[in-house]
């Protein structure tokens, strides 16, 4: 088996028991073994006894293999899937407060439109924007807004699901 030692971002989707302490177990595993967490979200699913965790982590093949195995070993982990290994859809969300002046107001609004962001609050000197999309899209938007003056930024972290297979195209490995 060939192992690549190139670091890559992986999105891990985990179904866990919806109990207190599970998040601490997962977080403790990452910190205790020196793995990275880029982002982590957790929320209940349709089944109230199960929560879904989406973890974005970074590592080479060997590290990622260990992370998946270690997560799987947790008694309260019901399933662990590396979405990066298959076709998936992921979304991040950000709420961004952008300072505006008379000169920049239109430009901020235009950028928001390009990225299909919505203005969810507005004052004479500020727009508050809401944007969803892939991490890359959000980063692109932040990059454009930065020069105009971002006052505050909150990101939700990634959530992701596997794409449903369709037609004969069930073996697709990437988007």
């Amino acid at each position: 088996m060939s192992v690549e030692s190139v670091e890559r971002e992986h999105i891990v989707s985990m179904r866990v028991e919806n109990r207190s302490g599970v998040l601490a177990r997962v977080a403790g595993l990452f910190s205790g073994r020196g793995y990275n967490i880029e982002s982590l979200t957790v929320a209940p699913t349709l089944d109230p006894t199960i929560s879904m965790m989406t973890i974005v982590t970074k590592g080479d093949d060997l590290i990622i293999e260990q992370i998946l195995k270690q997560l799987n070993k947790l008694v309260e982990a019901i399933s662990v899937v590396d979405l990066t290994e298959r076709a998936y859809i992921d979304r991040d969300m950000a709420i961004i407060k952008v300072k505006t002046t008379l000169e920049t107001r239109a430009e901020v609004f235009r950028i928001a439109e390009i990225f299909r962001a919505r203005v969810i609050d507005s004052t004479n000197t500020m727009y508050t924007l809401e944007v969803t999309g892939t991490g890359r899209k959000i980063e692109a938007m932040i990059y454009q807004l930065e020069s105009l003056g971002i006052e505050e930024l909150v990101r939700a972290g990634h959530i992701a699901v596997a794409r449903e297979p369709y037609g004969a195209d069930t073996d697709r490995r990437s988007e």
Binding site: M1, V3, L62, E65, Q66, K69, Q70, N72, K73
Partner: peptide, 11 residues
């Protein structure tokens, strides 16, 4: 499973 292939240099 975590014991298997745990050590980086040992294939």
């Amino acid at each position: 499973p975590t014991s298997i292939r745990k050590v980086r240099d040992i294939e």
